[in-house]
Computed example of a mutant assay.
Amino acid sequence: MAKSKNALRGHFLQPYTPGETEPGEEWLELAHQISTIGDDTQEATEDEAFYDGDGTPETTVTSVAGAYTPEGYYDPEDPAQELIASLKYKVGEGRKVWHRVVSADGRKEWVGRATVTAIVAGAGDASAYETFSCNIRFDSIPKETVLPEG
């Protein structure tokens, strides 16, 4: 079984304009000075038992909200980080972006509109470098595409 490094997984962003239904062609890679990206996906479930079983509850997943939490050092000259930083004092649709995730093996991608929260673009101890972090949560299940091998 092959193993892939996390650094091979790609995270890309684009600004979102209210009313858009598809992202454009220009993607900004969120990678420069990013040392970790956590998976903060949340699931809602229901447990129910049925008479046609033995009474043991079955779990049904009722919703999935895919999310990622990048962390690293803040570089205001990096276009992807600056896009995130520009959203800090916005609300509602002002916090929306397009988010694209490409699997580490390059075989699949997931694209969808997302909301950015918990933005930190410059914080930390006086003797430390400025930190960067946020939460990027898809607003619905992203569109999955199998990419051509190449």
Rank of each mutant, 00 (worst) to 15 (best):
A80Y: 04
E82I: 00
P76W: 04
T69D: 13
R100F: 03
E29Q: 14
G19R: 08
E29C: 02
R100Q: 11
D39T: 06
P70K: 03
E82F: 03
R100T: 03
V116S: 07
D105S: 10
E71T: 15
A114L: 09
K96E: 11
A31C: 10
Y16A: 01
V91S: 14
I34L: 07
W98I: 04
Y73S: 13
E29G: 01
K90S: 14
K90N: 13
Y51K: 09
R9V: 03
E93S: 12
T45H: 12
Y74K: 00
E71D: 11
T36P: 00
G10W: 00
G72S: 07
G10A: 10
A44V: 06
T56V: 14
E46W: 01
K88I: 13
L28I: 06
R9S: 13
E26R: 08
E46D: 12
L83I: 11
R9G: 05
D39E: 15
G24I: 09
G72K: 07
K90Y: 04
Q33Y: 10
V102F: 02
A31V: 11
T41E: 05
E93Y: 05
T69E: 14
D40F: 03
E26Q: 13
G53C: 04
G55P: 07
E82V: 00
T62P: 04
P76Y: 09
D47W: 06
I119L: 09
D54P: 02
V91Q: 12
K88Y: 09
D105A: 11
A31I: 05
T115K: 13
P18S: 12
H32S: 12
E22S: 12
G24N: 09
R95C: 14
P18E: 12
Y89E: 15
E58G: 03
P79G: 04
E77C: 01
R113D: 05
S35W: 03
T69G: 09
W98Y: 08
G66M: 09
E20T: 07
T59G: 04
D39G: 05
G112K: 01
G92Q: 08
P23K: 08
A118G: 05
T17L: 05
G53P: 02
A49G: 15
I119D: 11
T59Y: 05
